[in-house]
Design a protein around this nucleic acid. Structure first.
Length: 513
RNA sequence: GCGGAAGUAGCUCAAUUGGUAGAGCUCCAGCCUUCCAAGCUGGAGGUUGCGGGUUCGAGACCCGUCUUCCGCUCCA
């Protein structure tokens, strides 16, 4: 087992498979690229993370409610959000420089270059002639006319090709224009390919273009389209938030790094609706609040940092990421964006419905501003797992692999062992299991030496092991072994429930917030 | 998507020039009865990712394909 930093990530990925956390999707059919399944332990951990987030957002904040909107949404939703137009780019690669370009941008840049030439001609002419009339010049100068004709031809072909979705024609246009790659200077182009970031499918049993719907690329729009419904039926007043967890789907060009970037993934988002003008104050509030939530997991303060966006998306007036130090470097974990009133206004326009809030104090209606917190559940899962994964060297040359998961998030909270498989010890252990199983996920193991059983539980991150020995039969006490310290403590069986309740429940995490 | 590398048991890896697919760990059934892995016996587990080709013979060589890793590229 190597401890070189570049190997740690590989080891974590293997560990995930070997101990039932994450399997590749459809593995028996050679797998499906960038799609993964959560296994028996992974599903528990993921569920616990989701629950912690949900309680921190919804249960602890009186003015935040949660919804569960459908993955299928009316197609117009994605026109309004900008996903249909903004993310359907025809792409082309130069085979020599290996650089990728948007085919439409290459053509537009080429057209812009010709237009520059026309402008230069006009500039020169304007200096030469008095009483210069640009319109006349444009319609009479042979060179300008030639340029303009070329532009018109290109634009016509380009427009037709786009409308017909004729990717071959777009490529031919690039070749005919003799457009070269600015890096390699060659015209050695691949085919033009369309990358649709959204997955589409057909609703209804008869396939028909009009029935195309998309699998949502983000959960946020499910919140925006329900803004008014929730505000009215929940009698919500600004500022208030709507939270949601759920699957989203993106047809990534390159999806890699295990579960960090998957085609199907789960988001945990909260859209916080505020009075315009107060958004920066709430933006700061949620930045701090969300970082505090992450730090409560005690995975190391040094593993987190803010990354402010300098280049903002079209809908935002402030944005930052909370980044986490993954084994492959600092990467985005959660985004906090001040989205202005962009989304609600877009939906107002496309739906024709007013999505406003009546402010009693000001006696007027307005479209609220939105501050968004959006965290990837799968990335959060990976961050927790990779921080928890430890290859320890113990005294005496021993080593062990332990997942030091936050106890409240561990898939199994307590394992119960009979020290030996006889003398009535298994029976007493089973009795303890029965007492604990209504409160916690518990596990029983009687196979192999007790030391081996401890290691097995360490590997899946079980925070506590209870061992029943011969003394237990006499005085009803057992030993409780701590995963991280490996220390043992003897206590009465009757104390176990309260002891574990304090150590492994979400309550202790929530109280830190 | 491009370039490079890889794919053999659940895991980690062997298999000389192309010549009978193996080990350790894990797992299962027992033995032992032990508070921190690696004691003993037995057992299960493989069309060598998949498909084709060359060959008397392919885990190895060739072609295709799928998946993974690294770099580039893209990223709401």
């Amino acid at each position: 087992m190597s401890t070189k930093p570049e190997d740690i990530f590989k080891n974590i990925v293997s560990h995930c498979k070997e101990y039932g956390y994450i399997f590749q999707s459809s593995e028996i059919y050679d797998g499906l690229s960038a799609v993964y399944d959560y296994a028996q332990n992974g599903a528990e951990l993921k569920k616990n993370i989701r629950e912690y987030w949900w309680k921190a957002m919804v249960q602890l904040n009186e003015n935040i409610v949660g919804i569960d909107a459908a993955i299928f949404m009316h197609p117009t939703t994605w026109k309004a959000s900008g996903h249909v137009d903004a993310f359907n780019d025809p792409l082309i690669d130069n085979k020599d420089s290996k650089k990728r370009y948007r085919a439409d941008v290459l053509i537009e840049d080429f057209v812009a270059k010709i237009e520059d030439k026309i402008l230069k001609e006009i500039e020169k002419a304007a200096k030469r002639f008095e009483n210069f009339d640009e319109t006349v010049y444009r319609s009479t100068n042979a060179r300008v006319i030639e340029y303009q004709t070329k532009i018109n031809d290109i634009n016509l072909r380009f427009k037709t090709a786009l409308n017909d979705n004729n990717l071959n024609e777009i490529r031919q246009l690039i070749i005919d224009c003799e457009i070269v790659c600015p890096i390699s200077g060659t015209k050695n182009w691949t085919d033009v390919r369309q990358f649709n970031l959204m997955f589409s499918t057909a609703i209804g049993s008869v396939s028909d273009e009009a029935n195309t719907i998309y699998l949502r690329p983000e959960t946020a729009q499910g919140i925006f389209v329900n803004y008014l419904n929730v505000q009215k039926t929940g009698r919500m007043k600004l500022p208030f938030g709507i939270a949601q967890t759920g699957k989203a789907f993106r047809n990534e060009i390159v999806a890699r790094q295990f579960i960090f970037r998957m085609r199907e993934f789960e988001q945990m988002e909260m859209q916080f609706f505020v009075k315009p003008g107060t958004e920066m104050q709430w933006y700061e509030h949620w930045k701090n609040n969300r970082l505090k939530w992450h730090l409560s997991l005690e995975l190391g303060k040094h593993n987190y940092k803010f990354h402010d966006h300098i280049k903002l998306a079209h809908y935002a007036n402030a944005a930052c990421d909370i980044e986490f130090q993954f084994p492959f470097g600092f990467k985005e974990l959660e985004g906090i964006h001040s989205r202005t009133d962009f989304d609600l206004k877009q939906h107002e326009q496309h739906s024709g419905k007013k999505l406003q809030f009546f402010d009693v104090e000001e006696n007027r209606s307005y479209v609220p501003y939105v501050v968004e917190t959006s965290v990837g559940l799968d990335r959060l899962f990976l961050s927790i797992l990779s921080a928890a994964y430890k290859e320890e060297k113990l005294e005496g040359g021993d080593s062990r692999i332990v997942l030091s998961l936050p106890p409240a998030l561990a898939p199994i909270k307590v394992a119960v062992f009979p020290l030996v498989k006889k003398d009535g010890l298994p029976e007493l252990a089973e009795k303890i299991i029965t007492e604990l199983k209504y409160n916690f996920n518990v596990s029983y193991d009687e196979k192999d030496t007790v030391g081996k059983r401890y290691r097995r539980q360490d590997a899946i991150g079980t925070p506590f092991c209870v061992t029943v020995d011969h003394q237990s039969l006499q005085d009803n006490t057992v030993t409780v072994r701590n995963r991280d310290t490996m220390n043992q403590e003897r206590m009465p069986i009757s104390n176990l429930l309260a002891y574990f309740e304090e150590k492994v429940s979400l309550k202790s995490l929530l109280k830190q917030l």
